[in-house]
Design a protein around this nucleic acid. Structure first.
Lengths: 130, 130, 130, 130
DNA sequence: GTGGTCTAGACCACT
DNA sequence: GTGGTCTAGACCACT
């Protein structure tokens, strides 16, 4: 379910968050789904339980999941909505990035081609559930 | 010339690098220009000289500037070329970002509109020299 | 493992880099090996941690080692390849040196003898692993 | 007579020393020759007089030249001998360099070829006087 | 404990 | 004055 790159500069708990968000976006995880327990995921990935805990706590804070003491962690009903709203705020990142590429002399066609292909690749994937 | 956000998660020396690269891209800095000395910039920004030194050393290594001990630091002749080549390699970032936005359900038109406007805004600015 | 000459004109961090490269070339360090931590090496050599950090950071940049914050620093898989490629580029130094010796009237036989003996001594050492 | 690279990392006074030694080795300068005055060379090269002075002082110390107050600086009678002896001591550098190249896996033939060509190129030049 | 960043301040060679 | 190196020591995030 999760794959961790221990060598990455990105902290492990952020990798966990990103991957769980990806699973939500592509539909592999849905509202109400139960997540693996901190202990089991910790053993499965050979990772310190504190690191898993930190990722879950952050997702809880964002409203992506909620924890029921003694039961486990579950995906929130409005997880997808929360996530989409969050991503929409990242449109500013796209703007900044494109401006930089333009200033660096990258041709507009090169940029548009990449945008089109990337969008196509993702929207296809989003329609089916893995 | 530079503005530092001490609270940012991005290290100060990286902020300096990014901003100097921006100044190059928009044409405010050109080949041969002398940069503020480590000490003067350090005082102007209320930042430790070592931090300035770290930023300049990294830009030296990248071939963006060259330092002449006893004289100062100067923008390299091929700084713009080095920078453009570097930015071109970051097209993968654009791809990843667009894929995420697509998965989050952002409409294609919204993305294309932002890309077009951002490109237009930058290419205009790049044609004139401040 | 490392020996530092504080009086040398060569900066300490460069001495560290050279010595670590030597340990790689003679096979005392291999891909995957964990390096002493910044702090422990700093204490062992009575050198400031920042200086160790500077050496490690440069070796990281060159692809000789990789650092995992919270874990430690490790020799890269392709460290030897990176190093060999780097050394091959320094054949120009050999050319310059021999030209100077020739102009100084050093006999060709003297030079060839030294080259032969040095090559022999090293290739023997490189075949075994300490 | 001298060409200075202001951008080089090698200090200017060392560049001056190296070049004067080269002129001696190839025979362009000989015992008794008068060197340009500090002031004239300073103006010709657009360099601070102190820098020229530092180079001359060092060559004086080595016994390569001597200064006659009010007259100027002159090449010593035994300048060539001093220089050759000095260079002969650098044979150790050759040894170290070849060992490193051998350890890095550079083929022996590659090294010998470069040594032969370099020696040939220099000895030809040394026989005639420019 | 581990690497990464930063401050404060010193000293050096070179110009 | 200028860049480069180094020490001493602090704080941070991550594990």
């Amino acid at each position: 379910m999760f794959t961790i790159d221990a060598l990455s500069r990105q902290p492990i708990y952020e990798q966990l968050i990103s991957q769980l968000e990806q699973l939500l976006l592509i539909g592999s995880l849905k509202a109400g789904d139960r997540l693996p327990s901190v202990r089991s995921l910790s053993m499965q990935l050979s990772i310190n339980p504190n690191t898993i805990q930190k990722a879950y706590a952050e997702l809880d804070r964002r409203g992506i999941l909620y924890s029921v003491p003694g039961k486990g962690c579950f995906i929130s009903d409005n997880a997808s909505a929360v996530l989409s709203a969050h991503k929409r705020k990242e449109l500013g990142t796209l703007e900044t990035l494109v401006k930089e590429l333009a200033l660096a002399g990258i041709e507009k066609n090169t940029i548009l081609e990449i945008v089109n292909q990337a969008y196509l690749a993702s929207s296809k994937r989003g329609n089916r559930n893995d």
